[in-house]
Design a protein around this nucleic acid. Structure first.
Lengths: 205, 205
DNA sequence: GTCTATACTCGGATAGAC
DNA sequence: GTCTATCCGAGTATAGAC
């Protein structure tokens, strides 16, 4: 009995991990149930046994992914450090989180694009939304106090762009720059430091 | 005879325009031949008559798209203005071009991701590659002359990120900021001016 | 719970009449 | 050149034996 339960949990967990991998790389439509089954070391029928349909399986994985996004954006919410420290904290937090899951950014962008309504709703309830709004508000306050300059939305959008794009468009950029996987990883690693300086200078009065 | 030829050209052209629309939004795999046929006001069989297969049709459209990318990047290559003017020129050129074709950026990123080898080859032959390399080189020279500071690749990547991301992740960012289509368009329009100031400050010595 | 066999659906491609 | 009918492969989902 215990054994059965454990087996079940293990299989379920194995499927989830496999599904995450495959969905992140290929998206909902692009993912193949066979690929997920292979990755999990089981056969297709099992997937249906545990999760009924592809869509249902995706929803589970996707909820996890949103959870991760919340955490990333949570890098924002912390404490009441001065704005420049907060920015530094966000850049490092996001970039490090993204490094351990490079496919994630493009995945989210795409799924957002294909199902805007679903996400609009999701955004309201999730704490990613509130964390971000809070951060934008911090920027607004700092601008009012003349600690930094520029339109708050533009500043926020710029930070997101600078952090996310290099991961989302990884293959394209790598090809453009003619970098190897290793070189690009190095570039991304060094980028944290560069970005903090770059952004801080860009918005200083 | 003339009439037939004209009809043929017209149909072919109609298909190309329809295909471009559908492929840009849905990508190669996501696009449906039926959707293209509907958009062009003909039936599916015609698509095959004119372009044989979906892949062949895509290649034609894609070549056009790369052509467009070349032009965008061509905004770089121009003349020997001082580096800061060149940057300004690039930002305005790219953003305006992207505004008239907002789906393009995400499309390219995705197809790149899914077929890296194909593009790596494409990059070598196309002049988009050379135009970019030239621009990176300009940045390198300017850094050496101490006109600007920072790692040239980081600077280049930052410019691309700042310009491309707001279009590529349009829906996601809009949702995050809670903007309407109109508000977001305004944000993008104002962004050109913001970016030039932001970047110039960020890399000034 | 796990497997094999099979049903069903969708979408790209072809044949053949006009 | 254009249309209708049809084929065929791929991929999801289910039935049923073990």
């Amino acid at each position: 009995m215990d054994k059965m339960t454990d087996d079940k949990r293990d299989t379920e967990q194995a499927i989830k991990e496999a599904a995450k991998k495959v969905f992140l790389v290929n998206g909902l439509k692009g993912a193949r149930m066979q690929a997920i089954a292979d990755e999990a070391g089981i056969n297709r029928a099992m997937l249906h046994y545990y999760f009924r349909t592809k869509d249902k399986l995706f929803e589970v994985i996707f909820a996890d992914a949103m959870q991760e996004m919340n955490q990333r954006m949570g890098a924002i919410a912390t404490s009441d450090l001065p704005i420049l420290k907060k920015i530094e904290h966000f850049v490092y937090g996001y970039m490090e989180s993204a490094s351990s899951n490079p496919e994630f950014d493009l995945f989210i962008i795409n799924e957002f694009q294909q199902n805007p309504d679903y996400f609009t709703e999701m955004m309201k309830t999730s704490n990613a939304g509130t964390a971000m709004k809070a951060f934008v508000h911090e920027i607004e306050k700092a601008v009012k106090k003349k600690e930094i300059v520029g339109d708050p939305h533009q500043i926020f959008l710029s930070m997101i762009s600078l952090c996310v794009f290099p991961f989302a468009a990884k293959t394209m950029v790598r090809t453009m720059l003619g970098h190897s996987e290793k070189q690009y990883t190095k570039l991304l690693d060094e980028r944290k430091k560069f970005l903090v300086q770059f952004v801080v200078k860009g918005i200083s009065p």
